[in-house]
Design a binder for these strands. Structure first.
Lengths: 130, 130
DNA sequence: TTCGATAATAATAATAGTTACTGAAATTAT
DNA sequence: ATAATTTCAGTAACTATTATTATTATCGAA
């Protein structure tokens, strides 16, 4: 893949991701993008999501629910997964990126990146169950 | 499943996990346990790993490499994944569990747990490549 | 503007990881 | 020992993801 060529599908996937504040799985992206390109292939969705992630334009999130989630917001922030409704949401919290240096202190390798996932019950599910 | 019954296989899986300091996948556990129980089923391994995780006796780790890893050390600690040799190792670092409270400050749900994964190049791979 | 090279696509097959099902064997209570 | 119930091995099924292939779209040059 020497020269990267433009594709409507990829552009559409990028724009769609940017427009949502949630963190859809490949399947959710596929369902959404089919409204614009009814016969886009799921393989195309996977390929372009991986490509965009490689290029650093989006982020791949592994929250441990069996499938990958994608996030167009590449600025450093952390996520919360509700064990009740399974939503993956952004956490509004003060910067804790210093943990990277904390981790590096007694480690002889190079730490390039990190991800923090919080788990529990979200506000909505909490109010429903009470 | 009212009364849980003893099983040699489950006990063997637990002991095996306790004896290793790495964080094997179900498949790695299967390969190892077959040395003792040559015709144990992969399904049995999965079922018991899930069961032990539910009981809180082991921890399931999602590091984003496509498969789950298992850790018999349930005390709070963090992990590092080498993007070179793909090893998942424990990080010896000072306690950062206060991030749980930091995250809770501006959040209306309940935060029950969290996991931190660090990524980069481990010491061994680093020395090899230089 | 057409042409030729090649990247990207849709459709589908294949793979990997995991879970579900079934009848037989093991474990515990009676 | 016998009955009741769990767990097992073996296997099929399922879900998420990647690979293959023939066709189509993009793009730079003639």
């Amino acid at each position: 893949m020497a020269v990267r060529k433009y594709s409507r599908q990829r552009e559409s996937i990028r724009e769609m991701l940017l427009s949502r504040k949630d963190h859809p799985t490949a399947d959710a992206v596929y369902a959404d993008i089919r409204k614009i390109y009814p016969n886009i292939s799921l393989g195309t969705v996977y390929r372009n999501l991986s490509l965009l992630a490689e290029l650093g334009e989006i982020k791949k999130l592994s929250v441990g629910d069996g499938s990958e989630h994608y996030d167009a917001d590449t600025t450093p922030h952390n996520h919360f997964t509700c064990r009740c409704c399974h939503a993956v949401i952004d956490l509004d919290m003060e910067d804790v990126s210093s943990i990277k240096e904390t981790a590096a202190k007694r480690f002889d390798g190079d730490i390039e990146d990190y991800s923090i996932n919080f788990y529990g019950v979200c506000g909505i599910c909490k109010s429903k169950s009470s």
